[in-house]
Design a binder for these strands. Structure first.
Length: 925
RNA sequence: GGGCGGAUAGCUCAGUUGGGAGAGCGCUGCCCUUACAAGGCAGAGGUCACAGGUUCGAUCCCUGUUCCGCCUACCA
């Protein structure tokens, strides 16, 4: 091997693409079920196929890659399965926007061609995020890349749907659902984001039919929905109103009369006026109240959330009002209704009111409760086992604090609306016999459907009474009438429905593939809190239902990445940190290391570029340490002449052993932050700051007896460290490792370092502590006396204790080298009494000879400060030791420790005083 | 409304069987010492949010308060 000539600074760009190509070409990331190791598998939370890598992905993926690379090096049978999801609504939006630019619509294209168009889009743009993941160095098995709309996964979706239906866990029904009037689809409860807004509470008079002079006053935030009221509720125990139950009121602006009902669930005695209007078609609570009282439902809005004339007619709205309201959106309608009420004197009062407004999580449009037939998953029977699995520890949520969050949500879970009125996704395998459902299906004629103008009302309607046939394929004939003319349900499934199957559908289910047998259940799921309910909970339910086992053992939940000010990153705020830009600027390893270092549990990450820059510097430090090593490693030399028993060698191996132990332990505990800090601390502040400095004289002396052994240790420890580092900084570790003597073709598949009991050297560690303290005193004294670092000086060193003195003797040459001076180990009694500055710590005294003209005031100040601190601490300890309570109740070892420290302080104090007196004398002279 | 988390150095954060308060970055001073100025050395800087309680002893355990964040909820 030739000694490589490394550049002075590390250039990540040159390194990263090169190695990534090698890794993938040689198939290091490819998993095989026949691998002898214990399986360790992770399925990636599939990013949207529309997406590009943001810093949240970067965090999520970095952590997974760390786990995966670590386990791979440990010899486990590792699979990291990548993929994307089809993101129904988001993807459809993207393609529809494209069409709009071309002056087309999905309707004008027709369903089939539209879907072709989406696939086309996916083929050209869908791999953006995949390529970016590769840039991040992710060691996924790309041969197993999956997409939720793939044939295999689609088959799994179909299978699950059919089985759930057969088990009575999927049903179709007309319910009030969350409707996005922009996406024109139903949303599940959790796809609605709530935002606090300042609203208005309108108090409206509803005159009694019997006694028009008297009115019931109801409060509402949505006055426009009053036209669809079908009752007014009061509390049955309310003395103000209970006598009115059973009577009727007139709905203002209409010719309708509605009953007053008593309802203790809906009505809160203390809120508003104590009377509530019931609009079953436009409010979730009212819907339920309507069910309780058998009330009719009047739907006022169409799918665009505009006032529907048919609904207004049904509500018997006065003609003039009806005219002005027709096809008006909610906000306009509200203004018109409020104005009309004011004119009639029906508006009693208006007040400010803060309330939560639901918005579509995809497009932020205000969602409307909308009455329509939809498909639902009956969730309780699925949730129960999913609750148990977490309760009994078969699934562990980390950090543990989120467990209650999960359990609370699961115990209170509501049926899941899974149908979406879009085209891109898994179409529901439900067919309707046209013959048998003649009265329940209204189809637009083909000319209307293809027509340029969108009429809005001429859409396909399949009423709640239609009878579906659920099957894996188109039914051959109708069981009832024998006919063969079917209409397929146009709705597609919620994207999360397919995502919920991800841990087993990606492994080949429903086939019993070797992959499935080997890698299910997966080991760990790494994800953000935001999809705990969307995804994690549903995977657990589906995994238990269809695999009979949990989908993963550990769920590691990481926090959100925010900007340096703690603001959520968003494109509109312009505060996004683009991981690709960062990788370009500072290197991928620096970004990965930074993200891992900030992944403290339960706390959001505030990411500033300076942190990444700092870790870029760390990478550069490693690079330069390697350059240093290469200057001294002579590859042709026969090493292993003798074991390295030198102090630096023993010490650094002991520290490396400790680092291996810590990093491994912290990874096992998912403490990425502490693992990185152990790596950083070890390499920079032990390996570079001390070890490399300590061995320089040995290396620079070609005839040094310890030369060969030292070079061996230098090389070995660096090599071990690189393996320890590799999961965190894959690129630089590979690049440097390749330049060192090594066996094997890549660091990727080398074994992860394991602590070696015989590396542990408490004696060397104790010696080092003494050494470090002594050097610290020398350097402090040097700084106080303004001696330049290079100036050779006379250094006196002594220790109060004999044993420690003896140790100092063994490291004299190291003290001389690092302290840059001539060492004298004369007893203190024989030191010159003047022209020596003495500093003291823990029994050590260091003396530096003072040249004429040096300002000693700084030294005196420091000494006085140290004396004051010593006295303060001594008084504190003394106080405790003099307390009878402390001495009688504190544990003996604590008392002994306090006594020892007090003794040490008073010992140092005597030496400090001595030093102070000499210094004063010198100052006076 | 309910639940959860946070408040420690100028900034970002570590700190679990309660007993001497830490790191990184930033700052100050001195140094281009042949691995590294993307560096080295030295140093300044903290009533551990506030008020009580438990304890011989509390940053740590308990209660309350204030402030910030998140999740969740049908107060019309």
């Amino acid at each position: 091997m030739n000694a490589p000539q490394l550049e002075k600074t590390y250039d990540p760009k040159a390194v990263e693409a090169r190695w990534y190509e090698v890794w993938t070409k040689r198939g290091y990331f490819h998993a095989s079920p026949t691998h002898p190791g214990q399986p360790y598998s992770i399925v990636i939370p599939p990013p949207n196929v529309t997406g590009s890598l943001h810093v949240g992905h970067a965090l999520n993926h970095s952590l997974q890659d760390i786990l995966i690379r670590w386990r791979r090096m440990q010899g486990r049978n590792v699979l990291w399965l990548p993929g994307t999801d089809h993101a129904g609504i988001a993807t459809q939006n993207v393609v529809e926007r494209q069409l709009m630019a071309e002056g087309a619509t999905r309707e004008s294209l027709g369903r089939e061609r539209f879907i072709e168009r989406v696939w086309q889009w996916k083929a050209t743009s869908g791999n953006t995020i995949i390529n970016q993941q590769k840039q991040l160095g992710e060691s996924c098995d790309w041969d197993r890349l999956r997409f939720t709309m793939d044939e295999g996964l689609s088959k799994a979706v179909l299978e699950v749907f059919v089985r759930l239906y057969e088990d009575g866990l999927i049903y179709r029904g007309e319910r009030l659902i969350n409707w996005c009037p922009r996406c024109l689809t139903a949303l599940s409860d959790i796809e609605v984001e709530h935002e606090d807004v300042k609203g208005t509470l309108y108090h409206i008079r509803y005159p009694l039919v019997d006694d028009p002079q008297t009115a019931l006053i109801v409060a509402t935030t949505r006055p426009e929905t009053m036209l669809g009221d079908t009752a007014v509720a009061v509390h049955p125990d309310d003395p103000r109103y209970r006598h009115l139950i059973g009577k009727k009121v007139r709905v203002p602006l209409t010719s309708r009369v509605i009953p007053i009902v008593g309802d203790s669930i809906l009505v809160d005695l203390d809120f508003g006026t104590g009377a509530v209007k019931i609009t079953p078609a436009h409010d979730f609570n009212d819907f339920e109240a309507g069910e309780r009282h058998g009330l009719p439902r009047i739907t006022l809005f169409d799918q665009d959330a505009k006032m529907d004339p048919a609904g207004l007619l049904e509500g018997m709205v006065e003609d003039s009002i009806l005219q002005s309201l027709t096809m008006k959106p909610v906000q306009k309608a509200r203004a018109i209704v409020v104005e009309a009420l004011t004119d009639r004197g029906n508006l009693e009062k208006v007040e400010d009111h803060k309330m939560a407004l639901g918005k579509c999580y995809r497009c932020k449009t205000v969602v409307e409760p909308y009455l329509s037939p939809q498909w639902f998953v009956k969730i309780k029977p699925l949730a129960e086992p999913a609750i148990k699995a977490v309760e009994d520890g078969r699934i562990r949520i980390i950090p543990e604090g989120w467990t209650n969050n999960y359990l609370g949500w699961m115990r209170d879970i509501k049926d899941w609306c899974i149908s979406r009125q879009i085209w891109w996704g898994h179409q529901i395998p439900a067919w309707y016999c046209r013959q048998c459902n003649a009265g329940a299906i209204f189809e637009p004629t083909s000319t209307e459907a293809q027509g340029e103008k969108e009429t809005g009302t001429r859409r396909l309607v399949i009423t709640k009474n239609a009878r579906p046939i659920i099957a894996r394929n188109v039914p051959a004939k109708c069981d009832t009438c024998g006919g063969g003319n079917f209409l397929r349900d146009p709705d597609v499934l919620d994207t999360w429905f397919s995502s919920a199957l991800w841990p087993f559908s990606t492994l080949g289910w429903p086939e019993q593939t070797p992959d499935l047998k080997t890698y299910y259940p997966t080991s760990t799921l790494v994800t953000g809190l935001d999809i705990l309910f969307f995804w994690v909970a549903r995977m657990i339910m589906m995994g238990l239902k269809f695999m009979g086992d949990v989908p993963f053992r550990d769920v590691y939940i990481h926090a959100l990445v925010r900007d340096a000010e703690g603001q959520k990153m968003s494109k509109s705020k312009g505060n996004v940190i683009d991981p690709l830009h960062v990788m370009e600027q500072f290197g991928t390893d620096a970004l990965r290391f930074t993200l891992a270092s900030m992944a403290s549990p339960g706390r959001d990450l505030k990411l500033a570029e300076e942190r990444i820059e700092g870790n870029r510097n760390f990478a550069n430090k490693i690079w330069n340490a390697a350059r240093f090593a290469h200057m001294h490693l002579t590859p042709t030399e026969e090493l292993h002449h003798s074991a390295d028993r030198s102090f630096p060698g023993l010490w650094i191996r002991s520290r490396l052993n400790d680092a291996i132990q810590t990093v491994t332990m912290e990874l096992e505990a998912y403490r990425f932050d502490r693992a990185t800090s152990a790596l950083y601390q070890f390499f920079w502040h032990e390996y570079c700051d001390w070890y490399l400095e300590l061995i320089k004289p040995i290396l620079q002396d070609p005839l040094h007896a310890a030369g060969s052994a030292t070079r061996q240790t230098l090389q070995d420890t660096l090599e071990v460290f690189l393996r320890l580092l590799h999961p965190f900084m894959p690129f630089i570790s590979e690049e440097i490792w390749q330049t060192l003597p090594h066996k094997g073709e890549t660091i990727v598949t080398q074994s992860y370092p394991v602590p070696q009991a015989h590396w542990h050297e408490p004696t060397a560690e104790n010696t080092f502590r003494l050494f470090e303290q002594t050097v610290g005193l020398v350097r402090t004294a040097r700084a106080l006396l303004n001696y330049p670092p290079g100036q050779e000086i006379s250094i006196f060193v002594a220790h109060e204790e004999l044993a420690a003195s003896a140790v100092l003797a063994t490291i004299e040459q190291h003290l001389a080298h690092i302290g840059r001076g001539r060492i004298s180990r004369l007893p203190i009694s024989e030191w010159p009494t003047s022209n020596v500055l003495r500093l003291v710590a823990d029994g050590i005294t260091v003396g530096l000879s003072v040249e004429h003209g040096v300002d000693l005031q700084k030294a005196l100040d420091r000494l006085l400060k140290q004396i004051a601190e010593t006295d303060k601490e001594s008084r504190r300890l003394d106080g405790k030791l003099n307390s009878a309570d402390f001495v009688s109740k504190a544990p003996p070892e604590v008392i002994a420790d306090h006594r020892d420290r007090l003794r040490a302080f008073s010992r140092d104090r005597a030496m400090l005083t001595n030093s102070e007196q000499q210094l004063r004398a010198m100052l006076g002279a």
